[in-house]
């Protein structure tokens, strides 16, 4: 009986130590992950992106935290925008059947003959990259994708990065959270 009591006491002591250890360890891991999350965020390298469409389908959020953004200083303000119009568009107009974007998230605004400005409506954009592909193929590549940090929940493992075929998504410093073409250039 004495041995059993000793074993019970020993078991309780060990359990206590283990619980304390796990609690401290857990707090440490939590603190470390929060510190990491605060300093590093996920972002897309626009020069690596191959417009596969997975940003729209693989993000844990719906619609995705990935949105198209527009580098206006690179844009040609073309009437015949390859990112806005379908390749076989009937005419260069805002008619839905002529638009490439599946959600009509790009607004085409007349500036002066023959120039037009293209503005992304972030609420409508689903990050599918269809316009990015059109702009990259036939235009200057001024339309490109970025992870928007006021929407992104900064998962420990980004579900898009996990399946990105061009390895374009990586962690970057939160102080340099965006890699916008024009102001941010492709590293040599």
């Amino acid at each position: 009986m004495e041995k059993k009591a000793e074993n019970r006491r020993e078991f309780i002591r060990k359990s206590g130590r283990l619980t304390l250890g796990l609690a401290i360890g857990g707090l440490g891991v939590l603190a470390a992950s929060r510190a990491t999350a605060g300093e590093w965020v996920w972002q897309i390298d626009p020069f690596k992106c191959n417009q596969c469409g997975r940003c729209a389908t693989e993000c844990v959020l719906n619609p995705s935290a990935v949105k198209c953004i527009h580098a206006f200083d690179l844009c040609g303000y073309c009437d015949l925008c390859g990112g806005y119009l379908k390749p076989d568009a009937n005419e260069r107009s805002t008619a839905a059947e002529n638009q490439l974007c599946p959600t009509s998230a790009i607004e085409r605004k007349f500036i002066e003959e023959p120039y037009f400005e293209y503005v992304i409506n972030e609420e409508l954009c689903i990050g599918c990259a269809k316009c990015v592909k059109g702009c990259t193929s036939f235009g200057n590549g001024s339309l490109h994708l970025q992870i928007m940090h006021h929407i992104c929940v900064n998962c420990n493992e980004c579900s898009i990065a996990r399946v990105c075929p061009s390895d374009a998504i990586k962690r970057v410093k939160a102080s340099e959270a965006y890699q916008v073409k024009g102001s941010w250039s492709k590293p040599l």
Partner: peptide, 11 residues
Amino acid sequence: PDKQGENPYEF
């Protein structure tokens, strides 16, 4: 990554 299905938004 190396096993992508059809892209529903393909251009």
